[in-house]
Design a protein around this nucleic acid. Structure first.
Lengths: 245, 245
DNA sequence: ACTTACAAACAGTCAAGTCTGTTTATTTGG
DNA sequence: CCAAATAAACAGACTTGACTGTTTGTAAGT
């Protein structure tokens, strides 16, 4: 046995809780809400079931706490990204890529697992709504930063933001039944072009690269023509067995 | 006892199966996949549990059959609508409205209930994929009819179609946690304007009503300015207790 | 000493699938 | 055409297994 330092109560609680919360998210992602049980979560976390029940009275409490912790982590990242974007005046393409990566990296898969529960369980839903609101505030910060730096209308920018989020949600839902990377990368490229059209060029910078006719057949094949070649665009399609973050 | 006509075996099977399949979809919509049980379905259908097990060996079989039946119904409607659109040359606004109505009228709520199951159960998924493909063929027919009548590029039209579907999926997912009719109607109006931009006017008809600048701040408030005032646009927000169709 | 963290056994519930028995329709031999 | 034979539709009890929440007991920290 390795030297096991004496840990304070607070440390023990923090570690055990964290293990359980992480295990819950991992299993939620990998197996789904209806398939996970408290014995399984305890096993995955490497603690006894008694420890689990000690820290979380009910399964519902454990799951909502786990989701809240996840959303708070993601929201913190979001706010950091917003500051970064505001500082260096990033492009809308960058934002779309970020959202896609964030959402398809477990976040929306986990969301899809608990949405049905939230739809039928008001207490569950009520616990989630506030932290989800906070998450949306993070999103708003990002887009408002872009709107400010480009002099775009905030109200209209919010509509574009909301549409972007909903589009990505729908795309990720679609990955469950449809495996086709081209389908997703084409749609992302199309959407980036759409979003870019709503933000005028930065006032500081001078000329536009290619004005491009803004009429109907705007982007016959909107795949490549836009900015970045393809850093790590789409590719993710419903990863069932994901390693932990 | 009221006069109970002698029914053929075939009639009895058809009726009992139909009752069970309908009850399954109703309960799937109202309670969710994880909450429904075979005793409950039998009760809702007004048949005994024995009758249920006689016609459907497993719960999985019952549920997939029920979903398939629903999707086939919706797909039939879709093809009818496609013919109709082709015949009278409807607008893209009309199509967007139709899709929104169709999806938010239980279809995508039911889908959200079974997607998690499909994600973790390959057999379940494999049973669904073919009928979902057929559904998408119906969608394709609609949009290709529009593209043909407007002389739009089919490939690009498909991208717009896919984006429309994903957007609507994401919007409906969002209704679970966010109740805000304006949010949805604004987004729909915005999207209709986007889609309309990709279809040139009908060659037969003469003048355009209002060309409208297609530049950045295209629709500062895109709520009313588009075509139809508002027939039965959005309004639906996560109806938990829906009457049967 | 006393409280908190952890461990494990326990009790109650309920689902899915199987099995046995009963009624209703269809087939068939006279 | 009818009655016996057969098959299908239906009804409900039973088995097994698993999960949640509870309780009782032990070890670690304050």
């Amino acid at each position: 046995m390795a030297e096991r330092r004496r840990r304070s109560q607070h440390e023990r609680t923090a570690e055990t809780s964290a293990r359980l919360l992480n295990a819950t998210i991992d299993l939620l992602h990998d197996q789904g809400f209806s398939r996970i049980s408290t014995p399984q979560i305890a096993a995955q976390a490497g603690v006894s079931r008694g420890a689990l029940t000690h820290h979380f009275a009910t399964k519902e409490e454990l799951v909502t706490d786990a989701i809240n912790a996840m959303l708070e982590r993601v929201t913190a990242d979001l706010h950091r990204f917003a500051e970064d974007i505001a500082a260096r005046g990033g492009s809308s393409d960058e934002i779309v890529d970020y959202i896609w990566r964030m959402m398809s990296d477990r976040l929306f898969y986990v969301t899809m697992e608990y949405l049905p529960e939230a739809r039928h369980n008001d207490e569950f839903k009520d616990r989630l709504v506030p932290v989800v609101k906070n998450f949306h505030a993070g999103l708003d910060a990002i887009w408002m930063a872009l709107a400010a730096s480009r002099g775009a209308d905030p109200g209209h920018t919010r509509t574009v933001m909301n549409a972007s989020m909903c589009l990505v949600r729908g795309m990720i839902a679609q990955t469950v039944l449809r495996e086709d990377p081209d389908y997703y990368s084409e749609m992302l490229a199309f959407w980036k072009a759409q979003v870019a059209r709503h933000f005028p060029e930065k006032p500081a910078r001078a000329a536009r690269v290619a004005p491009k006719p803004a009429t109907a057949p705007a982007a016959k094949r909107a795949a490549e023509p836009n900015s970045k070649p393809a850093k790590s665009l789409p590719a993710r399609t419903a990863p069932k067995r994901g390693a932990r973050a």
